[in-house]
Write a protein that binds this DNA or RNA. Structure first.
Lengths: 212, 212
DNA sequence: AATAAAAACGGCACATATGCCGTTTTTATT
DNA sequence: AATAAAAACGGCATATGTGCCGTTTTTATT
């Protein structure tokens, strides 16, 4: 006697359901997606799926965690790289631009929808606070490193600068989801962000980066 | 013989339904609200409400139009005022700040939800393009007036500056809806916006405003 | 006051999502 | 191969929204 499938098998099935969920969430968005959709897309049975996820909220938050980790690990890598912090910021802005362009074919729209959805239940959902501060701190770390190596001489606090950047990037994402890159002028807006940063950070000219 | 109620009566009833809709949309958001909710809140009957609005989408877009008009008329008034354009920008930023603070008790969250909802049906909904360009052009007009009177000497195109402002303000709104003013640092972010504008617009010092 | 037309009412049929739960199938061990 | 436990299945009861449509009420005119 003794049944039970391996833990690895369970994990695999979890991922299968999540993959199905991702496809549906991208196609239909968060609100319009139902467990039925995810069940049908996965090709599994109702009871089977419910054994792993008992609501679309559970499926989605699992997907969200994966999505977030991809995002933050990029910035983490930037922090470990050599080179000037201004280069890192340039790379970050390129990364953001790419992500924003791809946004409509990815989970981004559903993620915003999801946030509005969870907002209805909690007052200020802790997950959102965590996500926000995490994103903001990532950016801030990049800037702090630039201050530490004498590359930046910010005229305002890094806290304010990083928050400003996050606001701008969120706004750009939202507008990109509803409109398109031509209408919002994606490229030039990223340039404006860098223009702002040059003034706010008072960065030394490129020669100084070798001082460190 | 001859029945019919007056046109004014009809309009009044329309408004009654819209008021009920607004209350429910603020309370439950766009997606979660149903016609049933609006019908119950209005105190009218199912058939009666359906005579005026045959879907929540119709109720909402009527409310959206009213909301937009309030918004844009403020900027219109700014454009007609005397004084420097920098003062106008300052007033605008105060207005935005106030609106953002009030956002959670108003239609703002539902409006964003609504946009995600209509996005699922159309590709790029014309309404959204219209709203975006209208908002952006309003801001641009403010800046153009400042260029015309010699107050601003922009180092980049006003198109880019105004789009940047709109992105930032949208991002700030979205973050404010999900978080709160302490976490996002609302005041200092508005200051950062003005900091950006001072550099992008290269505004003359306050004495020069009298040149016009 | 009578009347005819429009407005308002509200029940009902239809459609759709949820998720429980009894049944069947698969699994690892003996 | 037999077995017992877990996993997978899928039907069904429940709940909920929509909006049509026959009936009742209200309205302005005669």
């Amino acid at each position: 006697m003794s049944p039970k499938v391996t833990q690895a098998y369970k994990e695999l099935k979890r991922q299968k359901i999540m993959e199905a969920g991702k496809i549906v969430f991208i196609r239909k968005g968060y609100e319009q997606t139902t467990m039925k959709d995810i069940i049908e897309e996965s090709g599994l049975s109702k009871g089977g799926v419910y054994l792993y996820f008992s609501s679309k909220e559970e499926v989605f938050s699992a997907l969200l965690e994966v999505s977030d980790n991809e995002y933050f690990s990029f910035i983490q890598r930037l922090l470990e790289e050599d080179g000037t912090q201004w280069d890192a910021i340039t790379k970050l802005s390129e990364f953001i631009k790419r992500k924003i362009i791809e946004a409509n074919d990815e989970l981004a729209p559903a993620i915003y929808e999801y946030f509005f959805s969870v907002k209805r239940n909690n007052q200020v959902p802790p997950l959102l606070v965590k996500r926000y501060t995490r994103a903001q701190n990532c950016v801030k770390s990049l800037l702090e490193r630039g201050v530490a190596n004498g590359e930046f001489h910010p005229v305002v606090s890094l806290e304010e600068i990083s928050k400003f950047m996050v606001s701008f990037m969120d706004g750009l994402s939202v507008n990109m989801i509803h409109l398109n890159s031509e209408i919002i002028g994606l490229d030039s807006q990223i340039d404006q962000m860098l223009f702002y940063l040059r003034h706010a950070l008072q960065r030394s000219n490129s020669d100084k980066k070798n001082m460190l």
